[in-house]
Design a protein around this nucleic acid. Sequence first.
DNA 1: AAATTATAGTTACGAATGTAACTATATCAA
DNA 2: TTGATATAGTTACATTCGTAACTATAATTT
Lengths: 142, 142
Amino acid sequence: MTEKFNLHGFLPFLLHHTSEKVSLGFRDIYRDRYKMTRSEWRVLATLGQYGPQTATDIGTRTGLHKTKVSRAVHSIETRRWLNRRQDENDRRIHLIELTKQGQSAFLSLCQAGVTYNQKARDFLGDKDFDALVTLLGKLNHM
Amino acid sequence: MTEKFNLHGFLPFLLHHTSEKVSLGFRDIYRDRYKMTRSEWRVLATLGQYGPQTATDIGTRTGLHKTKVSRAVHSIETRRWLNRRQDENDRRIHLIELTKQGQSAFLSLCQAGVTYNQKARDFLGDKDFDALVTLLGKLNHM
DNA sequence: AAATTATAGTTACGAATGTAACTATATCAA
DNA sequence: TTGATATAGTTACATTCGTAACTATAATTT
């Protein structure tokens, strides 16, 4: 059985290893620039990309646990980078939206993100990079 | 700038998202079967796959921080799944090797791992699966 | 040889995390 | 309408984690 098992081709290992390497490389940027955690950056980016939404929406989009979302939202709120507005019809729900400052931080990190992503694209080549994105997207829907 | 930035094609997001999904799916297996953490499983698998080695070797192979390796090794040692033997020439170094019990646990999880990996292979198809493994491996060396 | 620097691995401590329990509100069913 | 169930989000608590400091040993420099 062991001869059938190979860590190099074992997806949980391979993905985690690659993911950590790539994610942490970018984390240095938002950590140094804004002292943000990974959860905070994810929440900011999701709000910046998809606009005002609820905490549950953010959790669905990022895959973050709702407690992580809750904490990250609070932390970003403290920076005055977002506002929460209670829904009038369903008072359990709060619509979360970036402030001007939040949008500006998102924009600044967008630029860094595009540059960072381009490095990987250059390294792999356009064709392979696009193939990788497609394959990962597909795997997400397994 | 924002229009150039797309979370769907942003590697740190995409990789992390996919990786979490795939890794956690397998984690359920070793957690339910042996109450192991992710670090512990990684250390066990590395020892099973590459044989006796030092803690530093394990760290290099898994990408785990040395404190995580240290803790995981202790925890696995408590189960009597591994032995540590001090190097006679360099007494800072300990060679870590699986016991019979450790090997047997590794074997049992190997089987589950092969099955788990095969599900992804079936889902993507042989060609795409192999392409994905290749691309991730390449990206690891960026 | 003594002093300095480097490496292997552990430990302490504050920060981050996950689970479960909780509050508040809404929906559904009897 | 009331009782049961479901959902949004927060909080408490124990566990895990990362950073930095530490011990022990080895290698290098002076």
